[in-house]
Each structure stands twice: as structure tokens, then as C-alpha cells.
Design a protein around this nucleic acid. Sequence first.
RNA 1: GGACGCGUAGCUCAGCGGGAGAGCACCUCGUUGACAUCGAGGGGGUCACAGGUUCGAUCCCUGUCGCGUCCACCA
Length: 922
Amino acid sequence: MFAVVQMPSVAAFAGTGRPVSGPASQNSEMLEKTFDPKSVEPRLYAAWEASGGFAPTDDPAAEPFSIVIPPPNVTGSLHIGHALNNTLQDVLIRFERMRGKAALWLPGTDHAGIATQMVVERQLAAVGNQSRRDLGREAFVEKIWEWKAKSGGTIVNQLKRLGASCDWSRERFTLDEGLSAAVRKVFVTLYKEKLIYRDKRLVNWDPHFQTAISDLEVEQREIDGHFWHFAYPMEDGSGEIVVATTRPETMLGDTAVAVHPSDERYKSMIGKAVRLPIAGRPIPIIADEYPDPEKGSGAVKITPAHDFNDFMVGKRHNLPMINIFDDFARLNENVPPAYRGLDRFAARKKVVEEFEALGLLRAVEKTRHTVPHGDRSGVVVEPYLTDQWYVNAEELAKPAIKAIEEGDTVFVPKAWEKTYFEWMRNIQPWCISRQLWWGHRIPAWFGPGGKIFVAETEEEARRQAYEHYGREEPLRQDEDVLDTWFSSALWPFSTLGWPEKTPDLARFYPTHTLITGFDIIFFWVARMMMQGLHFMDEAPFKRIFINALVRDAEGKKMSKSKGNVMDPLELVDDYGADALRFTLTAMSGQARDIKLSRERIEGYRNFGTKLWNATNFCQVNGAARAEGFDPAQVKLPLNRWIVGETTRTARAVTAAFADCGFDQATDGLYRFIRRQYCDWYVELAKPVLGKPGEPSADEAARDETRATAAWVLDVVLKLLHPVMPFLTEEIWAQTADMGAAREHQGFLMVARWPDLPQSLIDPSADAEIGLIVETIAEGRSVRAELNVPNSARPQLLVVDADEAQRKVLQDAGPLIRQMLRVADVRVVDAPPPGAIPYVIDGVTLALPVAEFIDVAAERARLGKEVASLAADIDRTAKKLANVDFVARAPEEVVEDNRERLADAEAVKAKLEAALARLGAVV
RNA sequence: GGACGCGUAGCUCAGCGGGAGAGCACCUCGUUGACAUCGAGGGGGUCACAGGUUCGAUCCCUGUCGCGUCCACCA
């Protein structure tokens, strides 16, 4: 009899000497009735972490496999997208760890400039109605660090609840000292290489945060607006010219009106001037290719300081650039006094009113147009003329494009390459300075005369200044900080210790796979490619896996404002982390969105319970892995068959994981565990195992089956572990003595991944078990369709089968009796009248159940089958009669069809005979 | 305006040149010794539409319609 299962083995795994508390009732012989994630998950996670098993092995022979986490914002809390992304990373890292790689999943968080500053500003306002300016820069930044110490770990702890096996001993933060040093080094190096430069040009200005933002942080939103058509009178009184605008306030900064040189309407006006209403300035009418004569009036007002297109026109014509805003987008001293200090939207209203009053408003048109907004602030951004720091992205992009073109790094799915190329080939200078307080301070100092000294340290800057000026001069460090993405771009090497030449850097760079969402291909992936190649001479990843976007059950993007967010932690509470992980993994199919439903998660929770219960069955029946068990040596067809199926599954799942085929892997696991192992193997094994505690008719067969069942379970636990780590680890622990002969006694997490040779697949066992399974399944179907009472125990008659098939079915007698609920399996020459026949694999079987059934129903059933066969025969016959088909289709296809026809005809004949007999009965 | 992706069972999705599959939902039956978070069985699809290529198209090509996303566009 199988021994008592005890928990202490888990404590031994943990290696802490500290007993690990388990579920309350550890004295029972069996597993708990159901797996209880709430008590198991925290306990196992703590034990894993304490064991040091999340860190890569020290074994120098182990091949490195590294993943860097897309660092979540410190302000963040785990949403479903994180859950998906991190589950996939964990699946992959657990898989590779078990495969013996030196698997490193390097975690960390991002300081998230604007987002974090926002959170703390909001808090300040809430508690003391204070602004950051009231507080001052230093104190404010101090506040953020305090906040970070207190709340910054939230998302990390949430990742742990998911089961993420990150090496927390290597956790990094984009603003920690090491990464800051990397940032300074990169900045200074690129500056020296003239790849970073300072420039005065139009930027996207966010008036809410009073900072420049990059193109990528601008979000186009479609809103309702107006086109106002304004008349500008000619300076010489010879008429007027009409221009249209959606932003009337900008007219105060107009410095020209442009027309197309070929536009006949305006040819004579070129070179003349109009008097700009309100401002009262004369501005020239110029000829430029930019205006489209087909659009509007064909004449365009030019505001070089507040419009990207106008800016270029202004440059071409050397127009004055009048900045009319301050940092808050209020009108400044460059406009008439009545407008000074007005908010841009108030000014807009006033300009329109004034034009109307002047009789110069020619038309107002309603329009729906897209307007750029700050992605964080949500306010309309303004093109604004300022000095900023830029990265020459075009230059850095070249090798990054090449690396993908040449396949050094591959996108999975490959289709994302196109998106990547599209952006990279049209890349614009990257504005990296931000007028914020939270972030990496730009390592640049200004001396007298605006001379700039860029250096990694202040001392070095002073030294340069001294050299330049020949004496000590006061220096002022640039107030600005760097775009958050500047530091994240260095993540794959800065986290490994760069610029120091650390062992980690040597061992784990380049990383192997990056798993991330397509929404940050430009923000992050592209920039990591650029920086990685520039500073490490090697692309930071071999493979970039782009995961799907999670949506709600209606397919809407989840957002708080829509109220359709699903909280992954709530789902973990309700169904366990494993169920959520399995669901996300199963639905991670590429190139589409994931629509998540609770029902689905529940289904996979039930799947976990199913495995739990199957384990219970194994335990109760004394399944035990035998010393020296060799799956190649098992004798019973049933066992040979399941060994083969296990092998098929193991090989398919391994290939799928290796290839990021996450959905295929879970599909294979689900199918095998549910359909093969639980539904058939366990059921078919019951007669062999007999009743627990009672002697068996065939002890050798029973022992072999017990050993095989335990072996299969071990393999299954390993294969499933990357996706359902908690459940499998718990089962592994609780069946520790069942696996006394396991090659590995520690945590399943670090057990060896199964490597099963193809030779374990035995086609003859497949055929044999296949026949039995079909016989039972089809027999059940017949019983159910004809409503044969459950209590009925007819015989199963083998009417027509070859020698081997007969033997198989007779040997499987006890098994078929139990599972098909028949009294006996008997070979007969001809079925008695009224026996219900069914045909599988060329074998005709029959159930003599005439007394139970409705003859009319049975006749209908047979009739339906005959009809469908007839249709099939007809179609196939026609096909085979087509000369073109026979001549052109591949030989095997033609052969298949011939067989199909012959088979169908044979079955049809048998069923028709049965139908005739049925008639005879009546 | 440009690009990409997607329309397959009630729902969510696999399949992608030789008679369409899964999970969930639905219906029927079931107190058999792992499991009702269960078991057995079943119904349900002119694979968006129209052309074309082919012996053969859900699958390849073209077009149409519908949905989604990204990029560009503020006169």
C-alpha cells in the first residue's frame, strides 16, 4: 500500500531548515480535495525565492539564456497587459531553466519621468494644496524618492503573485547609481561623437507640464472644431486676401501670407503686403510651393513660430519668427496689450470676436479634425520654439535597421519588422530634454557666453571650463532632465553593469529574447536596438517576441475610463495564478488581440483541478516510480501507448516553447492531460490496477502500470510547470515519495526537462489501444443515441474482424466491460437479429439491445448514416471519374480517395444489411 | 491620405491548397470505487461577399464591404 504523503520534503527543498507551513491537514493519505492556491502560492513562492533558484546556475558549462523585463513604471500597478507579458516571460525562463540553461530573468522598474512626477504632484496638491514649485526642486525630488521607497515596490510584489521567477538579487531601477552612470557615459560619448547636439527648433510643447515632449508622446485625437476664414486687407487698399485657420490666436504671430507661385489668382499680389488685423503689422505675401491652390482659398497664413510647416516656410524665406506664447501657452508680450496673459483658448475666442467686429470674418465652417494632445497630460500641445537636446537618430538607426535586415535579430511574428522598418527609415531627430525635475539631470554645464561643457562629472566640466576660459568661471548645470526612454534604451546592458566590464555583462549580453507589446516598438525596442548596437557592437536581443494586446470580452481596449478593466490580482484571488497564467498563455496567439473572459479562466482552473484529482487517483492506486524505470522497456500495450503519447506531447511542447509557440504548447498540454491521460489512460488502467489494497490478477502488469503512471505524471508535471508552476510544484512535493526514484529530489522548478526519443513511440500499441478506444467510444455513442438504459448490460459482439483485432478486443474484455458497460465481449460469426451494428476501422461490432430500443429510432439512425455515406460515395466517385483529377492530382491523393470510396462502400453495405435485418425483426 | 492586421459553430479563437477543429456556452443522460471545479453523448458552420488561378480554394491572387490598429495630416 502506498505510503503516507508528508510535507516535510518541501521544507527540505527550501534548504532553509525552516519548516514550510502547508495546508492544515497534512496527515491525510490523500491530497486535499482541491488545490488551494491561496495557501499554496505564497508559501511556494517564498520557498522558491529562498532557495536561490531564480538566479542563473553558476555552472560555467551552462549556456546563458537571458531576458530583461520591460521595466514597469514604479508608479504602476499590475494590469492585464503586464500579466500577459510577464507570464510569457516567466514561461520561457522557466522552460529554459529546466532545459539546463543559465537562465536569467533580470527585473527592474522604470522611474517614468512624467508619470511619477504627476503622481507625486497630485498627492502634494491633495494633502497640502502645494505645488512642486512651492516646494522647490530639491525638496520635491526628495519627496518622490520618499514616495518610491514607500510605494515603488507595489508592482514588484504583484509580479511575485503571478509567480514571476525573476532574479530579484539583480533587480535594477533606471535611476539607481549604476544606471545613472551609464546614462551619463552614453550622453557624453554621443555628444563627443556629435550624435547628441543642442538645437533651437519647434518642439511639441506640453503646456500642462511645461515641457517638451517627443513626437511619440503626441497622441492625435479627433475632435470637433471650426475653420475660420479671415480677410487680411491689402496694405495698399487694393482689396483683401482670405486665409483660413483652426487656430485663430496664432494669427497674432503671422509673419507672411503664402500663395502658390502658379496660382493665377494671386500672382499679381506676390511681393505686396497685407496689414495684419489686430496686430496692425504689415506682412508680405510670398510665393512658396507649400500652399495647395485646391485647398481653401489657396492662400495660407504663415506662423513660423507655431506651426511645423510654417516653420519650414519661414526658414526658406528668412521670415521673422514671433513667439506669442509663454510656457503655459498664455499669450506673451509680443502681442497687443489686450491679449497679454490670456490663455490661448480665451485669445482664440477674442480674436474671432474682433474679426467679426471688424467685418473681416468671411466664414465659419464646422470641421472634425485631429489635434495633437500630450499622451500624459491630455491637453493640446503647441509647436513651440525652444532650445532642446537632440539625438541624431537617423545615424544610430542605420545599424539597427541592418541588424533586422540581416536577421541578427528576428521579430516574432515577423510581420512587425515592417512596422519597425517603416518608422526607422523615416526617423526624426529625437528630442531628449524634458523640463521636468524627476529624471536623469543632463550632464551639461553652461559657462559665461553660453559655452557648453558636457562631462560625466561636474569636476570634469570645471576642468574643461578652466581650460577654455583660462580661469575659474561660474558654471550652471542644465536644469533639464532626460526623456525617460533615454535610460530605458540602455536597459539590456546598463542593467548588466555596463560601463563596467562585469562578468554578468560578458555572460548575458546580448540577451536572448525580448517579450513586449507592439505599442512600445518605437519608444523602446527601436531605441534599445540603436543604443545596444552603438555601445556594445551587438544587437541586444536575438529574438523580439511581440505579444498581443489584451482587451475585454467586447474587444475594447481596457481603460479605466471605460470601466472595463480586469484586475489580474482579483483574477488570481478568484481562480489562482496558474489558471490565469494558463489562460493568458493559451490565448497569446500572435497577431491578434486577446479578449479575456472569466469563463475561460474558470475552465482552465478546472483543468488544474482535474490534474490534481488524477494525481490523487495515482496515489490511491499506489503509483510509484520504480528504481531504474525505463519507459522503453514497458510491456503492456496500454503502457507502451501512453509512453508514446507522452513522448509525442513532450516533443511537441518542447518545440513549441522553444519557438515562442505558447498557444500551441498549452493546446498540446491540455489535450494530452485531459483527453489522453485522464479520459483514457487512467480509465483503461483501472482494471489493471484493480482495487487498492486487494491482490491483483496480474501483479507484474499492475506494478508496471503503477510505475508507468507515476512516470507519466512526472513528465506531465515538468511539461506543465512553466505555465502552471504552483500547482505542479505542489503536486511534485506532495508526491515526493511516489517519485522516490526520481532523478531529482529538489524543486520541480529546477528539475531536468524531459528529453524523450522518438523511438518510445510504438505504432502497434497505438493501433491496438486506438481500436479499443474507438470500440468503446463508438459503442457509447450508439448506446446514448438509442437511449439504451444505463443499467443495461448487453454483450458486445465482434462480428467482423481480423485475427489480430479479435485478439486485441478479447484481451481487452475486462476493460471494455467496465467502460462500455457490457456483460461480455464475444466473437460471433453473424449477429443475431436485432443487434445494433457499428463499424470502426474495418471492424464490425454489434450490441444486441433490440429489447431496449425504439426500432424506428434505430432505423432512422442507420438511415441517416447510410444517406451521409451515400453522399460521400457519390462525391468521391465523381471526383475519381474526373480524368483531370486522376491525371493531375498527386498519386497519394488519388489513392486516398480510392480508399475512401472503398471504405465508405463497405461500411454502407454493412449498415444496409443491418437495416434489412432490422426490418426483419419488426 | 499611407501602412498593417482581422472577418471560420451562439461566444473566443486554431487551421491556411485535397471533405472544417478546440475551449466556453447550449441540449440529453448519469449517485459506477480520482474528480459534480465531474463523467458520457449530442446539436450547431454556403469558413464576410464577388470574381480569378487550379483537377480541386476556408486556405493563393484581385476587388468590394465591414471591423481594428499604427503612421501622417491642425492653411
